[in-house]
Amino acid sequence: MSFVLTCPNCGPREVTDFGFGGEIGARPSREPSFRELNAYNYFRANVAGRQREWWYHRSGCRAWFIAERDTRTNEVHFTRLPDDEDPAGEAMVPAGSGLAGARRERAAGTRGWDLR
């Protein structure tokens, strides 16, 4: 794998500068059933095509940002900070916030546990 990703803070960098945070998905907004919980923890959509995903600029500004990437070609369509407006005009957050009672109801994505 080799491509360039543009950190919204730092600019274009080799992908190896970044940590991959997985595809963006919603954390259940209410207590899930055990089945739903396992699906949330362990299942991924794994789309072949355009995907919204989290990236972390590990060897740079250490900010999390969102990228839309084509998983087949590694073409990156855009990157943006979580608070920035979405170029595609999509609500960034799939419905429902992760944590009931969080100050701003915005879901974080799911991701696996292989932090590094």
Binding site: G19, G21, W54, Y56, R58, R62, A63, W64, P82, D83, V93, S97, G98, L99, A102, R103, R104, R106, A107, A108, G109, R111, L115, R116
Partner: peptide, 18 residues
């Protein structure tokens, strides 16, 4: 150390805590 900072800041990126 690094992983925890990543973990914390990732959730913060989504939640918008002050």
């Amino acid at each position: 150390a690094g992983a925890v900072e990543e973990w914390f800041s990732w959730w913060l990126a989504g939640w918008g805590h002050r």
